[in-house]
Design a protein around this nucleic acid. Sequence first.
DNA 1: CATGAATGAGAGTTCATTCAT
DNA 2: GATGAATGAACTCTCATTCAT
Lengths: 200, 200, 200, 200
Amino acid sequence: MGRPAPKSSRGLRTRAALVAAAREVFERDGFLDARTSDIAKAAGVASGSFYTYFDGKDEIFAEVVRQLREEMLHPHVRERTGVDDPRELIAAANAEYLRSYRRHARLMAVLEQVSQVDESFRALRYERGSALIERNAAMIAELQRLGRADAALDARATALSLSAMVSRTAYLVFVGGEPVPFDTLVETVNRLWFNALRLS
Amino acid sequence: MGRPAPKSSRGLRTRAALVAAAREVFERDGFLDARTSDIAKAAGVASGSFYTYFDGKDEIFAEVVRQLREEMLHPHVRERTGVDDPRELIAAANAEYLRSYRRHARLMAVLEQVSQVDESFRALRYERGSALIERNAAMIAELQRLGRADAALDARATALSLSAMVSRTAYLVFVGGEPVPFDTLVETVNRLWFNALRLS
Amino acid sequence: MGRPAPKSSRGLRTRAALVAAAREVFERDGFLDARTSDIAKAAGVASGSFYTYFDGKDEIFAEVVRQLREEMLHPHVRERTGVDDPRELIAAANAEYLRSYRRHARLMAVLEQVSQVDESFRALRYERGSALIERNAAMIAELQRLGRADAALDARATALSLSAMVSRTAYLVFVGGEPVPFDTLVETVNRLWFNALRLS
Amino acid sequence: MGRPAPKSSRGLRTRAALVAAAREVFERDGFLDARTSDIAKAAGVASGSFYTYFDGKDEIFAEVVRQLREEMLHPHVRERTGVDDPRELIAAANAEYLRSYRRHARLMAVLEQVSQVDESFRALRYERGSALIERNAAMIAELQRLGRADAALDARATALSLSAMVSRTAYLVFVGGEPVPFDTLVETVNRLWFNALRLS
DNA sequence: CATGAATGAGAGTTCATTCAT
DNA sequence: GATGAATGAACTCTCATTCAT
């Protein structure tokens, strides 16, 4: 699956140029209207060269998303070990997520579009991929066990709902243009989490 | 814009058959893969007859959505005058919305898809359509004024976020197949609203 | 399988024009070099109209071959009941086949080409399709039983070989241009059959 | 025409590897579906290296066929001098041909395919190549002159037909899978020759 | 001599929309 | 009003061949 990786540095450069061009084209045109030939042109290569590295639009989009994930996860998120106040943890995660979303809003919009169209990209969305929900559910359950969160809530349904709330609101604001200032958004979302969980 | 409404009863019947067929086809194939010729075939008319009544796929989809809104709003929602306990009001609205969503899940999925693709359908979604957000925001502000809801929350951002939470979670469960029992979903969502607002 | 049959007489005409055009194009260009767009153009219709009636080159070629078979089998072959001298029967069948082959030489050449390329057209060749071999084998076995043909021959292998001889020689002469006069060809082939079988 | 023969032993090795690889690829994929890049890959060289030795697919195929002819003709055929019973000569030639055909069935199938597609390869086939037909015709004429073969037959047409019979039947059995045991095939073909010629 | 990336013309196919009957 | 055939622009993907390194 997928074309063989380039063996020369020239190939490496061309491939990278294609991915960068794809990102631009996807952001500009959306997934459906993007044409492989436009990506090739934007990368400054012949249309056929696209197929030296990718099997089609899906493949290169997957690569773009892979890069996006790196950019959204790497920075600070996991490195925040040592923090054990759940409020701080949640607040930091939300803020980080919203900052990332804002930075990559156009691409997130495309990802959202693709998720609706292509089953296989569903998993890449915030609320589902990578067991984020499960991790949050576990955290909530633990807080409930410690008597620090509302015990009447179903941990998993709560994790799902609150995560959905953050990602969806981010979409409505950064992509949909709902007029909410960034700081207000972060504060509101955080406070809603705390209140919702009845975090002591 | 739009084709003239049919005058004969035969024309009325054909038009209705097309709309019903469109709904089936959209539910089965999604918006993008639905072909006008398939809709015509499903309605038992010639492909050309489609254009006697509609200008294209968008037009007939708009009609289907118009019907959907009728079905989702009419029943009991607005008629629930006289109730003034905010908890009951919110709980009833959420439950009703989730029930509707479940009933029309396939079409809601298509609507979601279309929203991503076609700018002009964005407005039809739950969180924005018909000033629902604004009404919720007003309600929240009123509760805050009465000292019955967390005064620290931004009313509009809160209305937006909580509405987004409900609709997005509905999507994840009813369309995406997230395994959450219906009653758990309703209870969780309601409780999250109450907690989030600190409804006294 | 296959596109729906035309429902109007106009459609019938267009379909027929496409088949006729296909025959010309196949005879002129061979199967591999024939383009569906050329067939459409030769039929005087838009390139897309081709697909109103056929799924692709294979489909229309199959239709051309179907017509060819009609033309090659109908005329006199089966109607020659009442003849029971095996020599006459064989001679008549060979002569008829060779006459047909000569008449349709160009198309037979294309059919030969396609048989080499596409598994699914193999069966259309003379030596295999339609149990011709089996019928000949049965005839040979019967003659052997009556003591009128060389009993030492394997009936089926003989039928296969002699049929192959006729069709292949026809190909070499009518398509390949081997310089053998028609009458010489018929006489030689007949005499070879008689001798080979030792028909008394 | 054709690229210059390699001078270094390294070049010699590469060229030989390409020819061997070509043979495998042709047998596996047929002529039309074989890609020069696959041949290069199978030979363990870069795709561009192919063109150091050959001008294209046709060229290397010609080389493969040249090798095939060597293998099919060299062994015993010509060395059988001293035999002058025509029956033995014919029987030996047929048996040898059929044995060779069976051994190289896959490649013969490809050769057959190519003959249909490429004019310039027609001449390589059994029935025409290298004056075999003419030699057979001369032999038949001689036998007729000696009164040992049916004088009523046209010598050349007969040579053509009987040769065609053998090669075509071989194709049908070894490539087409017609169920005829090898020994039955040889015996039948031989006896058909003898009978057909009325060899005394 | 070997490498492997780059090229780009070209063919098949789809389907929304029109319109003569 | 209904029919259904006709249209044709648009886009993807392949692969033999070249050539700079």
